[in-house]
């Protein structure tokens, strides 16, 4: 239970990191274009991630000798391609906002899309996600979070 609470708090902290990322990336996009901003952010992010990988390897080195896990050699290629839909997001967002949607509307719809995907993913086990039955309570949670988010997005 404590472990679940930790994951749960980490996910919320992830949302805080995401908000900060968007805040600074939009500042960069204001000075450049959405594409160049995202390109620079991905490049910077790769360097930061590389440093983090290096630091964790240094920190874990003494322990890793004992339980050396087999090398993950047989992973399917698509496991490594999560960056493509992630980066393509920038393109679609730019198109939607250049079209008839306001920034707020586009953000709100993207949140709805994320939640729909999450529910479909749990239900059908998309991308090898663990299957989980969607229950009535899930719909209540989704309704609250999406309604509250809409109030925050449109309530400026």
């Amino acid at each position: 239970m404590i472990d679940r609470l930790k994951d749960w708090l980490l996910a919320i902290a992830g949302g805080v990191l995401l908000a900060l990322m968007i805040e600074y990336n939009s500042l960069l996009a204001k000075h450049t274009t959405p594409y160049i901003a995202s390109w620079v952010a991905h490049g910077m992010g790769a360097i930061v991630a590389l440093v983090l990988v290096f630091l964790t390897m240094m920190a874990l080195r003494p322990r890793q000798k004992e339980n050396k896990s087999p090398p993950p050699s047989k992973l399917p290629v698509w496991f490594y391609l999560g960056g493509i839909p992630g980066a393509f997001t920038v393109v679609l967002a730019a198109i939607a906002i250049n079209g008839s949607l306001s920034l707020s509307e586009a953000i709100a719809l993207m949140l709805v899309g994320q939640v729909i995907f999450g529910m479909l993913s749990d239900h059908f086990g998309l991308f090898l996600v663990l299957k989980r039955r969607i229950i009535l309570k899930d719909f209540l949670v989704v309704t609250c979070v999406l309604t509250g988010s809409a109030m925050i997005i449109f309530g400026r």
């Binding site: 698509w78 496991f79 391609l81 999560g82 960056g83 493509i84 839909p85 992630g86 393509f88 997001t89 679609l92 967002a93 198109i95 939607a96 079209g99 008839s100 949607l101 509307e105 586009a106 719809l109 993207m110 949140l111 709805v112 899309g113 994320q114 939640v115 729909i116 995907f117 999450g118 993913s121 998309l126 991308f127 090898l128 996600v129």
Partner: peptide
């Protein structure tokens, strides 16, 4: 454009699902 924005949210979700795996 509504469809594109919804699709975009689903792309974000799939990116996170793949990275999670």
């Amino acid at each position: 454009f509504i469809f594109l924005a919804l699709l975009n949210g689903m792309l974000i979700g799939s990116s996170r699902a793949i990275n999670g795996q």
